[in-house]
Amino acid sequence: MNIHDISRAPTDRSPEIQFDPDACSLSISGASFPEDGAAFYGPVLSTLDEILKALDQRCVTVRIALNYFNSSSAKALMNLFLMLDDAAQAGNQVIVNWFHAADDDTMKEFGEEFAEDVRFVRFNVIPTAVTS
């Protein structure tokens, strides 16, 4: 499968996904409540899994800047973080930066919980200025 297939343009219900294979950086931003969570995230996650498994001693940076997501998106994110944790355990340096609006406690707490579920990834929870 072509690695460029990972990138997605944003829609009303699904986030923008940008992946740069050279820099090994991934960004997921916007809102995420696709009609079918498995259909949207499935291909992205399985392609990413292949890419991560092929990495050796690389530095991977992941930016998550979601303002809203639904239950199946939360599950997909959990799967993503476990994959990244495996890659980190395999010897890559993996950094996740979880951005949340400074006044959004729910998004902050989700970030903190995900951070507890990974052991080898460096997981940063970062507040951003509230844009009204």
Binding site: G37, S72, A74
Partner: peptide, 14 residues
């Protein structure tokens, strides 16, 4: 079940 329920609630809410 919880995930489906959560998605459905979100769907209804929107």
């Amino acid at each position: 079940r919880m995930m489906r329920l959560g998605d459905r609630l979100q769907e209804q809410l929107s």
